[in-house]
């Protein structure tokens, strides 16, 4: 029933899409993190002129499907070639790759903003008071106290967001990018064996996300040394015979 040779061949073809998938995910996650940090800090800072547009951005991108965002960026904005050419932006919007990066980045930026904003809010106020009492300036409090604690608190949620992005790259198959899902569709149309091909592709994504989970997990472990239970003292070699 299961044709192992075919599965191996499908794997070989599908693996060729992995670099593009990872490139899309890595680029949009890092650019999105930058957007998220700036927006979350602006929201935390709380100036009304800043919070209003950021809230609108976050709501718009969290409230609509990524698929719509990708189509809108690619085909929707493509309709305005003369205007974009006049602005000198057409070189960017002409390429499906950059349209995909733009849509994915803005999407993950919006989710990231909410995650980091939440984390900034959860930093215990005592920490900030202590820092202020030590005479730290506002910026120094951010750099040394608020951001490091908030980023550690945000890490589990951000890990989920990264996984969602790795999964989200599959939607760029719709704007002609040849990543893993797109190759899977090609294979299906060539061989008409949809189930085997999609199972292989699923396994590849699962493997990628497993690696992401492990990396996030190990970072989390290293950053939470002070929260772990102290090493069991009884297990240490007892000295002086006083047990």
């Amino acid at each position: 029933m299961i044709d192992l040779d075919f599965m191996a061949e499908a794997f070989r073809r599908l693996i060729q899409g992995v670099p593009l998938t990872l490139e899309l995910a890595a680029l949009s996650v890092s650019l999105g993190l930058a957007i998220a940090l700036v927006c979350a800090m602006a929201l935390h800072y709380g100036h009304r002129g800043l919070t209003w547009p950021i809230r609108a951005y976050v709501t718009a991108f969290r409230g609509t499907p990524l698929l719509v965002q990708i189509f809108f960026t690619y085909y929707g904005l493509g309709q305005f070639r003369p205007e974009l050419q006049a602005l000198g932006l057409w070189g960017f919007f002409r390429e499906p790759f950059w349209c995909a990066i733009l849509a994915l980045t803005l999407n993950t930026g919006a989710y990231g903003t909410e995650i980091i904003r939440g984390a900034l809010q959860s930093v215990p106020y005592g920490q900030i008071e202590a820092a202020r009492a030590c005479g730290m300036t506002r910026w120094l409090v951010y750099r040394r106290i608020l951001l490091p604690i908030a980023l550690r608190l945000a890490l589990p949620s951000y890990g989920n967001e990264i996984i969602l992005m790795v999964k989200g790259t599959s939607l760029t198959s719709i704007i002609t990018l040849l990543e893993v899902t797109s190759i899977a569709q090609q294979l299906t149309s060539e061989t008409f064996r949809a189930i085997e091909v999609f199972v292989c592709a699923g396994a590849i994504y699962l493997a990628m996300n497993f690696v992401v989970t492990r990396i996030i997990g190990s970072i989390e472990y290293r950053l939470s040394a002070h929260l772990r239970a102290a090493p069991d003292l009884v297990a240490l070699p007892a000295g002086g015979g006083s047990a």
């Binding site: 085909y75 493509g78 309709q79 499906p96 002609t176 040849l178 797109s182």
Partner: peptide, 18 residues
Amino acid sequence: IREYKTTQEHDLDLAAGR
């Protein structure tokens, strides 16, 4: 060569100059 899901989509991209 770029592959599109539908001909309507490559029509849109021809009109867009991509």
